[in-house]
């Protein structure tokens, strides 16, 4: 492939999807599922992966047909494509991960309207080659999955004092072994706010703030003259 000669675009796609243009904390797309299902790590990651599947395949599909889709009706066409994919995912989850399907409920079909899927189709896939679009979808989805996972972990930990609860929904009975009780169940610990929608907002706000802080620090480091580095080394 010609892109092999120049690795930059691929690295950019990965960097954009996972960090720079992160769907969850930078583009703030798909807030509805982000806020609603991030009550635990398992929920968050599961929906994130489902979304990733859709973004990847829809990216590839849109990129494939990008020259044949008339510009005026591209959005309905994209939606049809995405809807078809989501229906597949929905049916598949219903078939093979039924208990998780019950937990995630309406949010699986709602992936169709998740802005991130549509946004990448419109903004990226419709203008780039199939492999690029697929990678972009994958990375965007993984970026979102990461945010959902971290947010779910935060809310689960603060709200119930556990981690990976509900793993059995995905992995079957061995999942039970995975559940971590950070606060022993005997304490009957609960901080409802974290589990309720406001907690999701607080958590997301903290994640965004944290991301901005890291970026600002990185920028500061980059712009600082080398002298400062030397100082730290000698110190």
């Amino acid at each position: 492939m010609e892109a092999n000669t120049d690795a930059r675009p691929w690295r950019d796609i990965v960097h954009n999807g996972l960090w720079k243009q992160n769907a969850g904390v930078v583009q703030l797309l798909g807030l509805c599922p982000v806020l609603a299902v991030s009550t635990s790590v398992v929920n968050g990651v599961s929906l994130g992966l489902a979304t990733t599947l859709v973004t990847t395949v829809s990216g590839a599909a849109v990129a494939t047909f990008r020259h044949t889709i008339p510009n005026e009706i591209r959005n309905p066409v994209f939606i049809m494509l995405i809807a078809a994919l989501v229906t597949c995912v929905d049916l598949a989850m219903n078939a093979w991960m039924h208990s998780l399907y019950l937990v995630l409920g309406i949010f699986i079909p709602l992936i169709t309207t998740n802005c991130i899927v549509m946004a990448r189709a419109e903004a990226y896939a419709s203008r780039n080659t199939v492999p690029e679009a697929a990678l972009d979808g994958l990375m965007m989805g993984l970026g979102l999955t990461g945010v959902l996972g971290i947010l779910g972990g935060m809310r689960e930990l603060i709200g119930r004092g556990t981690l990976f609860s509900g793993a059995e929904l995905v992995l079957g009975d061995i999942g039970h072994a995975l559940v971590l009780h950070v606060v022993p169940p005997a304490f009957n610990y609960q901080f409802l706010l974290a589990l309720l929608p406001p907690g999701a907002f607080f958590g997301l706000a903290l994640l965004i703030a944290g991301k901005n802080y890291l970026d600002a620090r990185a920028r500061k480091r980059a712009s600082l003259p080398a002298a400062t580095d030397n100082e730290t080394v000698s110190a």
Binding site: N71, E72, P76
Partner: peptide, 18 residues
């Protein structure tokens, strides 16, 4: 039904964009 809907909506959108 879906195809008909798609064609109809597509036509409306296409018309609107022009």
């Amino acid at each position: 039904i879906m195809a008909a809907l798609a064609i109809l909506l597509g036509a409306i959108l296409g018309f609107a964009s022009v």
